[in-house]
Design a binder for these strands. Structure first.
Lengths: 111, 111
DNA sequence: CTTTATTGCCTAGATTATCTTGGCATTGAG
DNA sequence: CTCAATGCCAAGATAATCTAGGCAATAAAG
């Protein structure tokens, strides 16, 4: 966990974070989670019970595709990569986030 | 609705927005929703089916208290105000939001 | 050699917050 | 007289996350 308790905040943001992670090249599930946590300086934690269902969902929607390969450490791993549709989705979700986050911050955060 | 489609992003943020709204003085439910929408320039929409359950939840948790009164337009309305506990909750959630939003923005948004 | 942590994937069920869609009552405007 | 806006409420659906497990292989530590 990152901060005090539950991260209900992650809701609706995980997909975009995964898509963004994959926009830098293919990665396997475990690697995606580790990358997001590191890139967020542990402010965002990605539980496996959220990650894998999210990956299936996104694959079903045609945003990402997977194939089996071998990880850097020589282990069997499923690598995901973005599709064109996924790239468009990332752009849309990024725009939504920017607008939403700015609005909420303007309300919540003192100047 | 604000942007393209669903606002899954609101998840976990509504409570803080309501608390913040009430930190400026007591308001009734309907007024809270309108204020948040206006303050966010329609980037955030607050459905009544989300609002009232949220208010009950927060009252149950001792963050807010309610009493019946009369609205500016002379109608019967239930006015909510912050408790000391609610004020502390607002501070905590604001901190969480700041940390989370900054981390996500750093990942998602191009420089 | 044995134990433990790490990597890596997966699933079932619970939780919880939001949204959808309804209803009700009053007031003001057209 | 009708319709939009104000104001409250509830039942059920939806959907995403988390909890808590299981499995297997490797590397490090004892």
């Amino acid at each position: 966990m990152a901060e005090t308790d539950t991260n209900a905040l992650l809701h609706g943001t995980l997909d975009a974070l995964i898509l963004k992670t994959l926009s830098g090249g293919a990665r396997h599930g475990y690697g995606i989670a580790r990358w997001i946590e590191e890139a967020s300086e542990e402010a965002v934690s990605v539980e496996e019970g959220s990650l894998y269902p999210a990956l299936y969902r996104m694959e079903r929607r045609g945003w990402i595709e997977a194939e089996w390969g071998t990880s850097e450490l020589g282990r069997k791993a499923k690598f995901y990569h973005l599709t064109a549709k996924g790239r468009r989705q990332l752009a849309a979700e990024t725009r939504q986030w920017a607008r939403f986050a700015q609005a909420v911050s303007k309300i919540l955060l003192p100047i």
